[in-house]
Design a protein around this nucleic acid. Sequence first.
DNA 1: CTGAAAGCGCTAACAA
DNA 2: TTGTTAGCGCTTTCAG
Lengths: 344, 344
Amino acid sequence: MKNEGDTPRAVTMRDVAQAAGVSVSTVSHVVNNTGARIGRDARERVRQAIEDLGYRPNAMAKNLVKGGSRFLGLVADAIASTPFAGQIIHGAQDEAWQHGYVLLVANTEGNEEAEASAISMMLEHKVRGILYSTWYHRAVDLPAGLAEADTVLVNCYSTQGSVPAVVPDESAGGHDATRMLLAEGHRRVAFLNTRTPSPARDGRLEGYRRALHSAGLPFDPDLVIEVQPDQEGGYAAVDKVLAMRATAVFCHNDRVAMGLYDGLRDRGLRVPDDLSVVGFDNQEVIAAHLRPALSTVALPHYELGRRGVRVLLGLDAPEGKGKGPVIVDCPSVPRRSITRPSEN
Amino acid sequence: MKNEGDTPRAVTMRDVAQAAGVSVSTVSHVVNNTGARIGRDARERVRQAIEDLGYRPNAMAKNLVKGGSRFLGLVADAIASTPFAGQIIHGAQDEAWQHGYVLLVANTEGNEEAEASAISMMLEHKVRGILYSTWYHRAVDLPAGLAEADTVLVNCYSTQGSVPAVVPDESAGGHDATRMLLAEGHRRVAFLNTRTPSPARDGRLEGYRRALHSAGLPFDPDLVIEVQPDQEGGYAAVDKVLAMRATAVFCHNDRVAMGLYDGLRDRGLRVPDDLSVVGFDNQEVIAAHLRPALSTVALPHYELGRRGVRVLLGLDAPEGKGKGPVIVDCPSVPRRSITRPSEN
DNA sequence: CTGAAAGCGCTAACAA
DNA sequence: TTGTTAGCGCTTTCAG
C-alpha cells in the first residue's frame, strides 16, 4: 500500500513534462485533450511519461483554477441509517455521477450542530449545490447556511421560503393503493392510517377518498382507523377492522400490514381469502417476503434522489409552474395479498 | 438561492484583507487562528469584514497548498442500496468527521467500470485513503487502482495481498447465538444454516459447534439443516426441525427466522413456548417487530465502518499481530423469542 | 505545433 | 504585530 519511501512526493504535471521533454502546457493539452493540435511524437512521449511515472492529475488544483468544483452536497437527517431511504443516496449518486459530479455525503442524525458544520464544510468545498433530504416525507426548517448555495429539498419541503423541492405523490399513491382493492370488487375498504400528522397521513387519506369517490362509493369515516404506524399498530387493529366487516384493508405502510397479517393469523384468518390487504412503502424485506407477498405502493426513494440532482443541475425545471414542488410518482407493486371479495 | 447578480465572484481572502485594511496573511492568521499574535483592533476589523462580506474560506485552495486533502473515499458495492448495511456509511462518516475528514461516497453496484472510475476520481482528489466495502461479508478481488492508495477493506477481505481488513466475528456470533439457547437449558438446538458458501456460513457453524462443545453436548449433523437464506427458506424448513424434535433453533439470519415464525404459526405452534428461536443480523424492521420480538445477534455494521476509518487513519493498529484482519464483535440482542424448554 | 507566463485562493516562511 | 513574497498543481491566453 503506497507508503514505501519517505516522502515520495506525488508526481506532478511538471515531472511529466520534464520526463517527456516538453512543457507543462503541452502535457495539460494532451491530458485534457483540448482542441490543441499536438504532434504525434510529443503526444506519444507524454503518454509514455504519464504511464511510467504513474501520473494522476490533481483535481483540487484543477478545480482551483477552473473556479468551481464538481461536488454536490447531500445532507441527510438519517438517510444512511434508515433501512430503505438509503436509496435516496443511491439515486442522487447515480445521477450526479452521470454528469461528472461527486457526492459529498453527510448524515447529521438530526443534530443541528452536525448539520451546520456539514453545510459549512460543503460550502467551503465550493459545492455546486446542496441536496437537503429527510428520511420520511415532512416539512422542514432550513438551516441558515443553505441560503448560501443552490439548494433543493428531497423528500421534504419548506414552509417558509420557496425552495425547490422533490416529494413523493402521497395522494396518488393512496389513490392507487385503494384502487387496487376497488378494482377487485371490494366495497368496504378499511384504511389503517397513521395517527401521526404528516403529509403521508393527509395525502394518502385524500387519495383513499378520491378513489372511493371515483368508484361511486360513499366515504365512511368509521372505516378509517388511526393506528400507531408499525407492526404493533396493525396487530392491535385487527378486531376493529373485523368489526367493521371490511373485506379489504389499505394499510398506511408495510409494517402495519405485517402486524395485521400476524393478528389475522392468530385468529385463524387468511390473507387474501378472508381479507385483502395492501400496504405502502414497498419495504422489500417485508413486502416481498410476507406470506402471501404483500401488494403495495412504492415510495420512490431512488427516483427522489435522482430528480433532486436533476433539478439542482437545472436539468429538470422545478415544475412547469416554477413554483410548486416536483411530485414523483409512487408506483403500484401488485403481489399476492389481494383477491376478489368472497363473502358479504 | 444565491444566483442573483451575474457573476457575483466569490469573495476571497484578498477582498477581506482589503476591506479590513490589512494584508492577506493577517486575515489568514485570524481565520485559522494560528499562534500569531494579532492586534485586538486588526483582528476585530477582520472579523467584521468577514461577516460583512460573507467570506468563506476555499477548502480547495487550502488543500492545494497544504499538499493533501481531508478526504476519505468509501467505495461500496451496494451499501447505500441495501436495507441495513447503510450503517457502514454512517459509522465511517461519523468517525471520519470526528477527525476532520469528509467522506467521498461511491456506490458502484458491483459494476467494475463504475468502480474503477470511482477509484480514479478519489485518487485525483488525493484522498487520504480508501475504504472498500461490501454489503455482505465476503472475499473480494481488489480493483487495481486501490494499490495507489492506503486502503482498508470493510466487511470483506482479500485472499491475495494482505490488505488491512475489518470484519465481523462470525464465529463468536454463532457461538453467542447458540449460547443464548443453551443457557436456557435447551439440549436439542437445530441450526438453519445457509447453503451459500461464505464466511458467515462457515463461521457461524463453527461457533455453533464450539458452543455445543463447551456445553458438553455432542454435535449432531442432522441438526444442521441447510436452507435458502431468507423467509422462504425458513418457512420451508419447519417440518424438518419439528421432525428433529429440536426445542430450539438458531437461524442463519433474521429473515429465515421470520419464515420459521410463519411456518410455525401455520401449524398452530408458538414461539417461544413450542420452540425457542434466535436469529442473526438484527435487522431492525424484522427482529424488533416480529411477534414475539426476535432474540438475535447483531451484525455490527456501524462499528465496521467506524473501525475501518480508524485503521485507515492509523488510530487502531491493524491488530496486534499486524497481520490478520481486525475482528469486530457481534453483540447479542436478547428479546422475547427464547424460553426454557417445556416438553421433552 | 509548442512554450512562457500569469494567475486561481491560500499558507508559510521571512522581513520589517 | 503585520506585510511581502514565494509557491501548491494546474489551465489558459498569447507569442513564437
